[in-house]
Design a protein around this nucleic acid. Structure first.
Lengths: 355, 355
DNA sequence: AGTCTTTGTGACAACGGTGTCATCCGGTAG
DNA sequence: CTACCGGATGACACCGTTGTCACAAAGACT
């Protein structure tokens, strides 16, 4: 029953600041000064220390350093996304990484799956790891818990969705305007029976998009209670089934507004199955890959996920700098525009069968 | 010019293990025992300590803990991917996260962009942050640098691509078999002039797929020097341009094997532009989203990225456990099968125009 | 009853850095 | 010539936790 300490011979004693100091013939504090760029070190001394560090291949131990530091910076950032494998979220992720890498900041990424419990657990895990800042997509109904869980010096930027019961910077798309735009586009083609397909109604973006849909319909005189709005479609399969059912009904819609990318995919599948893709109009919220290769091309309201990610990361670092300087910046709600991309499916007119 | 220490009144003195101990009327070591699940604590004592921890909302300081621990575990893992926004990589990422979360391990994800320098920089950044293990997709020609940079107790699992000059666990697809399969599929339809489109030849998977392509062609008696194999297609645009050019030539191919998902996208675009999507056969390596909605559906050799991610993560944790127990496991090269998914584009026969 | 284990527990050092402060020293003003 | 000043530097405590070890109390065995 051997004890812990029988490491293989590879046990090259790890080099610490003390050895560097001894080797360079200076005090440990001077080494510390050099690596941290503190003033009051003679140029010659600094050079000698740097040379020794390079020779011994010493890397300061982040844990020791962070333990002592009051102004703890781990050069680490927590990112919470719907799911890292959703293309929309992945693009955001990439954009954030590109900003962070310039600061030598590493990104913890975590998936949410629209689960409020997971949101809180993820944030707690980030905080436990002492991240410098947080970029969050939220699922919980209220973000008030953040006040207790996240230390005041850790900045938070919300992305994609607005928080509730908590004030912080937010970067998001113009969901209301975008869905109004999409719906108006269909209405302008002459459609009146338009089905709106939405994600979980607990999700903020879903609510916003539904609201935009309803407003546009109202502009054209469609009463709220006549809206064919289906919510809580959480999978492409659910969306597909819903569309199949809707189109089989006597009051079938002539157009569909699908308010999320996976719902759009489901809707396209359903239209295909029925062979009605040239017959029923479709506008989706959020772009889908290869949307231009499908026949007809899918008309969408495209968001700008890369810009969102970049804006969120930059804002986070601004807050970080400002707080270190002593005065946090006031929270800003940044709204990014969306773009209507016409590719064919949204330009189909009612009761105009395939030519 | 105020100094650092003028924090706002919110300076709620952070609670440490000492306060918990005092409050619970025990020694600090006992508190430590309780939180770490060490044996030899009386049930009653443990309960009292747990209650106190909950009441004071104490969270152990990870830095202090990691600093002291010999067997340092940060519950952190470094993941290096081609790019976090590539769907293939994103799926892997998600699968790894799902395994890691059960162990309360957080994942640092970083993108590679096929840049050897970035590979090294990313690994160094991970090591500096004392990750427990690494899952790497590699771009550099040699991974020998890992021996110097990564401490021997940190396990490494390679994913998607085999390393060079370094031995460690690897989880990857059967690239050779998959591309042979794809090429044979086209050959079996009667095609002989098949264009093979490949990614950067420096990338291991690209080489493997090219080799598989060449082997299958050789089986059917096509000499290597007659192969229409184009390498170093790094963007969909480059692939598109290449296909446009190839199909304009007098010896135009009747089929295309596109060895990577972005190349497939480019090839499909080109075929569309020429209106020959029903005329020229196409098999891609790696699945593409919505491939079944395009007409014709794109036939692909699909990898199993989720299974790869899961296998890699599980292997990493096995190594971790084994090393903590004292004996590292021998390196294993796990090869996952690929699946030929026929959707139409690969079943087009030569000189058979659209019906 | 006396000795040996086992179990529960806390005192204290150690981890590898950074913050504070004292000290040394050459230059400059009085 | 002396007092003073600021730059350069190192000694040492300290950050919050875990590892080691000593020790008391309670059983287990002879």
């Amino acid at each position: 029953m051997t004890s812990v300490s029988d490491q293989p011979s590879t046990a090259r004693a790890r080099v610490t600041i003390r050895e560097v100091a001894r080797e360079a013939g200076v005090g440990i504090k001077t080494v510390s000064r050099v690596v941290n760029g503190e003033p009051n070190v003679a140029a010659a001394t600094a050079e000698r220390v740097r040379e020794t560090i390079a020779r011994l291949q010493w890397e300061p131990d982040a844990h020791a350093s962070n333990l002592r530091r009051t102004n703890t910076r781990t050069r680490t950032l927590g990112l919470l996304l719907g799911s890292v494998d959703n293309p929309f979220a992945a693009t955001i992720h990439r954009a954030i990484e590109d900003v962070a890498i310039h600061r030598d900041v590493a990104v913890f990424a975590s998936s949410l799956d629209e689960d409020p419990a997971r949101e809180i657990a993820a944030v707690e895990a980030f905080v436990r790891r002492k991240v410098d800042g947080l970029i969050l997509t939220c699922a919980a109904g209220s973000q008030s818990y953040l006040a207790e869980v996240v230390p005041p010096e850790v900045p938070i930027v919300f992305i994609d969705r607005e928080p509730a019961d908590f004030t912080a910077d937010t970067v998001r798309s113009d969901n209301l305007g975008g869905s109004t735009l999409a719906t108006r586009h269909l209405l302008a083609q002459g459609h009146r029976r338009i089905a709106g397909l939405f994600d979980r109604s607990a999700i903020w973006t879903s609510q916003q998009r539904r609201e935009g849909f309803a407003r546009a319909m109202a502009e054209y005189g469609v009463a709220p209670d006549q809206l064919d709005a289906m919510s809580d479609l959480t999978t492409p399969q659910a969306a597909e089934a819903t569309v199949l059912e809707l189109l089989g009904s006597p009051t079938a819609p002539t157009a569909i507004f699908s308010a999320q990318n996976r719902i759009t995919v489901g809707a396209v599948h359903a239209l295909r199955k029925l062979g009605r893709q040239h017959d029923v109009a479709l506008v989706g919220f959020d772009d889908v890959e290869l949307a231009d290769l499908i026949d007809p091309g899918i008309t969408v309201v495209a968001q700008r996920p890369a810009a969102m990610g970049q804006a969120a990361a930059e804002r986070l670092f601004e807050q970080l700098d400002a707080r270190r300087a002593g005065d946090p910046l006031p929270a800003v709600d940044a709204v990014l525009p969306v773009d209507l991309v016409c590719r064919g499916s949204g330009e189909i007119r009612p009761s105009a069968p395939t030519d």
